[in-house]
């Protein structure tokens, strides 16, 4: 019996070990091309610093907008019954299944409609601008945010909200004082993962904002540019920075304190 258990555990652990080994190989292979001198030299360049700053700011902005919209939307999907809810629930996942390139194309095409032209006429221009990067990232990440937050709100016991109502809270106060604190850990995790997805976004961003160095080139699009010009030291530097940011984010998720709920 004990032997069978050991074999079972071994069979389950083996793919995990292989997967970790594969990821370590991918990351470790960078060291063959990495030199600290190149790294320091590259990082001192203005357009790389610009790409880092642009990525950080755009990812933060798109995450903030996505989460502000996703919190009420996810709560509505988790708690409120309305006609066509299943349809809406499915439709909202569209950006998750559509390739980002196609999403970027959709954004660009929508700019050629009368609404897009109207916005252009009043001075709001999105293609090939910083605002375009935010819109592209937002479009890609908002569905992830809604999906994660919906699961979070579904885990909050509705009975606690009901008790809060009967103890004098309005629906909004109950949401504010009971639901949000109880969903805190899930919300933080959603914010971090949304941000991580936004900072790594490439397809839609390139389609909407292009890859103008020092202007609209983000970290992922700068990696693409560097590789397409066979500028390996530059590409490796950017990849290392992106790995550093990604690892920080992943460990950040793990560090979010356990909710007492």
């Amino acid at each position: 019996m004990l032997r069978r258990d050991t074999i079972f555990k071994g069979a389950m652990l083996l793919p995990l070990v292989v997967l970790c080994g594969y990821f370590l190989l991918l990351v470790g292979s960078q060291s063959a091309f990495f030199s600290m001198t190149d790294f320091l030299e590259q990082i001192g360049q203005k357009d790389i610093r610009s790409a880092i700053a642009l990525s950080l700011i755009a990812a933060t902005a798109s995450t903030v907008i996505a989460v502000i919209i996703a919190i009420p939307a996810a709560y509505a999907l988790a708690r409120i019954d309305f006609p066509g809810k299943r349809l809406v629930d499915t439709f909202i996942d569209l950006p998750m299944v559509l390739t980002p390139i196609a999403l970027g194309t959709l954004i660009l095409m929508s700019w050629n409609t009368s609404i897009g032209r109207l916005l252009s006429d009043i001075g709001i221009t999105l293609p090939f601008t910083f605002a375009g990067i935010i819109l592209a990232q937002f479009t890609v990440v908002v569905a992830i945010s809604v999906r994660m937050l919906k699961a979070t709100f579904e885990q909050v016991d509705p009975r606690q909200e009901q008790v809060a109502r009967l103890l004098g809270c309005s629906a909004f106060e109950s949401f504010l004082h009971v639901t949000l604190p109880l969903a805190r850990r899930g919300i933080l995790a959603a914010i971090i993962l949304t941000w991580a997805r936004a900072i790594g976004e490439f397809g839609a961003t390139v389609m909407v904002a292009g890859t103008a160095r020092g202007q609209t080139a983000t970290l992922p699009s700068s990696i693409y540019l560097a590789m397409s010009m066979a500028d390996l030291p530059r590409a490796v530097t950017l990849v290392v920075i992106l790995i550093g940011i990604s690892l920080l984010v992943l460990f950040g998720v793990r560090m979010v304190p356990e909710s007492r709920g």
Binding site: Q160, L167, S259
Partner: peptide
């Protein structure tokens, strides 16, 4: 009228204490 204006206190089966 909404629940909060009915001034009824409620003790549910699962108690629903606020864990936070």
């Amino acid at each position: 009228i909404p629940p909060e204006q009915r001034h009824i206190s409620y003790l549910p089966q699962d108690l629903a204490l606020f864990p936070h």
